[in-house]
Design a binder for these strands. Structure first.
Lengths: 341, 341
DNA sequence: CTGAAAGCGCTTACAG
DNA sequence: CTGAAAGCGCTTACAG
């Protein structure tokens, strides 16, 4: 019922080898037979099976995006991942690769990689000393890590300049006269994306001659709800803060909502900077000042880097840093009341 | 290098047939040999290849979600699809199926289905008289249509009760005293999700004894930008409207932003109802009154329905209608100025 | 320029 | 209870 290479061969009166040759542009086939075969393929709407092909070739034209360790809510809710995957999908499109989406939970079950003979992996935000990281390396297939800051040499990586992002956001707030700037983040760590941004925050502070005050750093604020709860914590700070830098836009949205409910106005009472520039920041009220990273593009770059590896093309750069940019919008403003401490 | 069934067989001192039998629980194998084989499989971390298996069996444990005809922006931007795909992924997880994500553009290229021998399809929001629809049917593989309102018998479908949704949203606004309610939608059609909601809108109007006024129906308002532009159109209406029902939450967000920029307050000047209840509606300012449909669940249901078909289980219902629910939040309020026309 | 044949890693009757 | 063999749909040397 399904039409195979045999059917084409029979109809064209040639061997399957010849059909295979015109399919792949290999071997020598007279233009005449080639034409005839191509016509029949067209007519019959024949598409070679990657299954059979893959069994021989060890390639399947399938890559997988792995998003690890996300709680149920965080996965669907963060447009970040969505845009990322879209970018990856886009980046594979013209090369006839398809992308499988796989969320890896607590367990490190990567068996689907072998099972489906996936050609390559794009892994998002993983820790270099996690078991998962080792398991991925053990797979020994082309892999690109995103947002992972892995120090090991020979690893392909794509990330944004997170340190710069942290620096720019803080600097912007400082330039508006704020000198007590709360940093709302997901989890304090000594590596990774958020750590880099923290370094940027510290750098800007240092340049301004301000001390780094750990009381101003709040964890568990990466999600929408987390940001929401941070509002309270900010308002009860012993020494008042007039600005907050939230390391994700969804966290910033939560924070602004929380502040709003407590009667604090943004940016009049408190300025807020987000991070990511997800698609709706411009439509928030007030529109959100944030650090823009081109997530979609990052996804495409990762796909490009991965496919190049898979296709055995020479790939010069092993670590790509994409730029970030400060987008000033309406959620930040000059600090009004000065020196009324 | 990659370990195969042969390696296992050799190590266990049995034939590959026997290994295959314990793998699939078929045939008769002594518990003793079975145990030994299982242990070796475990030790060697062997995972059978779906490629080889699929070549024989004609199944690949792979399904594909097809999201047709979306402009670049609409795809990444609408959390709706994201939540949907998450639901599908979730619904396939425990059955060791994986999901491929494929955006089908202008062209109706479905060749990846044959190429990868995809076991089944979940298709979102497709028109029954599109070429794509026919092409999908011609594939003759298990398929579940979501949000598609296809009249043809024998088609598996999952949708929400869109007519009820349209009715509830309108009714809510009516109950607050609004009698000129703008309906902001993507595209006016005589079928599909939005059409059903329109029917609900009309029904509520009719029950309230109000005439259906086409001036109040605005197209091209399904996206964030579209909603934003609708704001202007609403304010220049010859007869003032005091409420708007936008058939997507992102459109509603755009509309509210637009109104805000024109100095109109929500809900004081104009009440706004959205549709979908995407994840951030509660965090908008004001929080959005909307029609909730459980998108994640819809994805899971579709996956369940599809896998049942693939596995040849008896599937009673062919068309599943999921409920919708009105979520009253802060973007709607009683109409204040009465009769000042 | 073209074809016969082996082989990729599995499953499935069929023998025994 | 276990194994030999054919076959799934392709590709790839190797002959000719």
């Amino acid at each position: 019922m399904k039409i195979t290479i045999k059917d084409i061969a029979k109809e064209a009166g040639v061997s399957v080898a010849t059909v295979s040759n015109v399919l792949n542009g290999t071997g020598r086939v007279s233009e005449e037979t080639a034409k005839r075969i191509r016509r029949i393929i067209e007519e019959r709407n024949y598409v070679p099976s990657t299954l059979a092909r893959g069994l021989k070739n060890k390639n399947t034209q399938l890559i997988s995006v792995i998003v690890p360790y996300l709680k149920k809510g965080d996965f669907e809710e963060n447009p970040f991942f969505w845009q990322l995957v879209s970018g990856v999908e886009m980046g594979t499109k013209d090369q006839a690769f398809n992308v499988m989406l796989t969320r890896v939970d607590r367990d490190d079950d990567l068996s689907f990689v072998k099972r489906h003979n996936v050609d390559g992996l794009i892994v998002v935000g993983i820790n270099a000393d996690s078991a998962l990281y080792q398991n991925i390396l053990d797979l020994k297939i082309p892999t690109v890590f995103m947002d992972s800051y892995i120090e090991q040499p020979g690893i392909y990586q794509v990330h944004n300049d997170d340190l710069l992002g942290g620096y720019l956001g803080t600097k912007h707030l400082l330039s508006q006269g704020h000198d007590r700037i709360v940093l709302v983040m997901g989890r304090l760590a000594d590596r990774g994306v958020e750590y880099q941004r923290l370094l940027g925050y510290k750098k800007a502070l240092a340049e301004a001659g301000l001390a780094y005050d750990t009381h101003l750093v709040m964890e568990n604020g990466g999600s929408m709800l987390g940001g929401y709860h941070a509002a309270q914590r900010i308002t009860v700070l012993p020494e008042k803060a007039t600005a907050a830098f939230v390391l994700s836009d969804i966290g910033a949205m939560g924070l602004i909502k929380g502040l709003n409910e407590m009667g604090k106005k943004v940016p009049e009472d408190i300025s807020v900077v987000g991070y990511d520039d997800i698609f709706y920041t411009e439509y928030m009220i007030p529109s959100l000042t944030t650090i823009r990273q081109d997530i979609f593009k990052k996804g495409m770059m990762a796909a490009g880097l991965l496919l190049a590896q898979i296709n055995g093309e020479p790939v010069p750069e092993q670590s790509i840093f994409l730029p970030v940019e400060l987008k000033v919008r309406a959620s930040t403003a000059k600090r009004l009341e000065k020196g009324c401490e």
